[in-house]
Structure formats: C-alpha cells, structure tokens
Amino acid sequence: MSKRLHSSQFSAISRRAVLQAVGAGAALAGTAAFPGRLFAQEPIKVAAIYTVPVEQQWVSRIHKAANIAKDRGDIEYVFSENVSNSDYERVMREYCEAGHKLVIGEVFGVEDASRTVADDYPDTAFLMGSSFKPDEAHPNFAVFDNYIQDASYLSGIIAGAMTKSRNIGMVGGFPIPEVNRLMHAFMAGAREVAPDIKFQVAFIGSWFDPPKAKETAFAQIDAGADVMYAERFGVSDAAQERGLLAIGNVIDTQADYPETVVASALWHFEPTLDHAIAQVKGGSFKADDYGIYSFMKHGGCSLAPLGTFEGKVPDDIMAMVSEKEKAIKDGSFTVEINDEEPKSS
C-alpha cells in the first residue's frame, strides 16, 4: 500500500520549514490585533470551505460547531464542500468579496495560496486547519488542528486490553502531523496495557476513500490484527464483517457499528470556533495557534461513552482510564505529541 502523499500535500509539508522561518524572522514589534472597526456586529458572517463532504469525520466536527454557533444566533453560516485544491483560492476570494468576516476551512494542500488571499483581504479573519504555525507576517491568519492526542491515548488503553492477538491494525489517510500524533498517542496508550503489542500501520493516500480503507484493513486482519484503529471510514466495516473490534477517531460511530466500535476519541471543535468568534467580535483576532483548544483540559476532546460495550471492558482498565483522564485534566500527566510518521512494529 502506497504511503506517499499527493503532490500538493507533499509540497505543503515541505514548505513548513520555509513558513516557520518567515514567521521567526518577522518583526514582532508593531504586530497588532485586528482593528475593531473591521468587524461586523452580531451575528457575524462566517463561511467555511471544505475539500471533502461534510460527512467526513474531521470536517463534520467543524460543520457541527458552526451550526451550533448559528443556532445560537452568533453567526450566519454558509459553506462549500468538495472543493478541490485547484479551486480553493478562488472560493476563498469569492467569500471574502461577499463580505464574510470569518473564513474557516482546511488548507493543508494550499498553504501558500491561502496566505496570499489573507494578504489581499486584511479585513477578513481566517481560521484554517494547517500543518504550519501562525506567521506574524499574516496577522489575520490563524491556524488550528485536531490535537486530540489526549483522547486517542485513552482509547489506546482500551484497545490494548481488548486485543487477544496483541496485534492491532491502523489505517490512516496521510502520514502528516494531524494523523501521526493521534496514532502515536493511541499506540502509547495500548502499550500501557500490553508493552509487547504489535502494530500494523498503513496509509491509503486519501482523506475519503472508504473502499480503499476497507481493503487495507482486510489485509491487516489477514495478517493477524484483531482490533482495528479506524482513522478513516471503511475500517470499521472491515472489522464488522470479520467479527472483530474497532476504535473510532474524531466522531462516535458506535450507533452504526454497535457490536464493533468499542470506544472513540472525539474531537469537539466548539472551543476553537467559539474563541475565534469572540476574538472577531472583540476586534482582537490575530495570527495565533488555536491547537490548544482541542486539548482535553479545554474541552476540545473526550472519550466517547462505551455504550454497548459498557461492562465489557475490564473494570481495572476503566479505572486506569479514569485515573489517566483526571491526570490529563489537572496537568499532572501530559500525553506526548509526536508528529513523526508512525511505523509498523
């Protein structure tokens, strides 16, 4: 199975060092927050641009948070889905021209172009999923990511207790930091229970290709995996068909796989978006890293309820999970953030 990124993704990652260097070299003095006069009164106009369907795990959480803010009356919300990288810049500009004051989305494959748009529309705030850090040269461009390593670690503890073969299969989209850190945290959690556990790691080269993810999962199951880490849609289907277990990622799919999905690490985008809305309304939006708002201590992630698996996970394991969760929240334990590509072991 190929582990290479699409060319646009590879270019985005290889440019990280360049953008970070620019950010480090930019003069910090004189970098101010957005002038208050640039922002509309309540509700503010928000637009989102997604490269995949809103049903996709990662995007669905952003979409959900935006709809909650819309229902509260804080924002007006419109969105575009399935936008290709080649069209992304055009759609960004169209929303800016339409007067939207906050544009959210994911720019992993169009990092340079998205910042160029931000330069051209200094009166618009941009909050974008990105592998890069904020760059003070672009004061209206903030970044976020799903730093849900805390919940992933806890789900790994459960997986380590549920595997009988001590062999776990892991199927991801691309080996980029957004995926890598969650896989590493999950693996670390599993090793807390079973230090000798083995992992099969594969990437399908797509954010949304359930058939390919399912095919990859079948191959790992045939190679001995009895618990699957479902970073992508399609993996839980393979586990269900073979009568095995799966661990979910970002969203809770247990209702769809009641006898398969034991636990899931959930991402809650609400703290991230709510902070951005407040900054826009207060006239203080600036280049910043919103990643911390995905941490468990900020309410940005959680372990999904066990549901149908309540009582099926050993009590001592759930006690360990509760203890670790408490330690994560009070700061006495920190889950390592490892963005390097995970390997099979």
Rank of each mutant, 00 (worst) to 15 (best):
S206A: 15
S206T: 11
S206W: 10
S206G: 14
W207V: 03
W207Q: 04
F208V: 10
D209M: 08
D209E: 12
D209F: 11
P210W: 02
P210V: 03
P210I: 05
P211S: 01
K212V: 11
K212L: 12
K212R: 14
K212Y: 08
A213S: 12
A213E: 02
A213I: 03
A213C: 05
K214V: 01
K214S: 11
K214A: 12
T216L: 15
T216C: 08
T216K: 09
T216W: 05
A217Y: 05
A217H: 05
A217E: 02
F218E: 05
F218I: 13
F218N: 04
F218K: 04
F218M: 02
A219M: 06
A219I: 04
I221Q: 00
I221M: 01
A223K: 14
A223W: 10
G224S: 03
G224A: 04
A225H: 07
A225W: 04
A225Y: 10
D226R: 05
D226Y: 05
D226A: 05
D226C: 01
D226T: 06
V227E: 11
M228I: 15
Y229A: 12
A230Y: 13
A230N: 09
A230E: 09
E231M: 14
R232V: 14
G234S: 07
S236I: 13
D237N: 10
D237T: 12
D237I: 07
A238I: 04
E241V: 14
R242L: 04
G243Q: 13
G243F: 07
G243C: 02
L244I: 01
L244R: 03
A246S: 07
I247C: 06
I247N: 00
N249I: 11
V250N: 10
V250M: 06
I251D: 09
D252T: 00
T253Y: 01
T253L: 00
Q254A: 01
Q254T: 00
A255N: 03
A255W: 07
A255H: 06
Y257E: 06
Y257I: 07
P258H: 01
E259H: 07
E259F: 08
T260F: 05
T260W: 00
V261C: 10
V261M: 04
V261W: 04
V262L: 09
V262R: 10
A263Q: 12
A263V: 15
A265T: 13
L266R: 01
L266K: 06
L266Q: 01
L266D: 08
L266G: 00
W267M: 05
H268W: 15
F269S: 13
F269D: 11
P271Y: 14
P271L: 12
P271G: 09
T272L: 06
T272F: 07
T272E: 14
L273P: 08
L273S: 07
L273M: 05
H275R: 15
A276K: 05
I277Q: 04
V280F: 10
K281R: 15
G282R: 05
G282W: 10
G282T: 09
G283D: 03
G283T: 01
G283W: 09
G283M: 02
S284L: 07
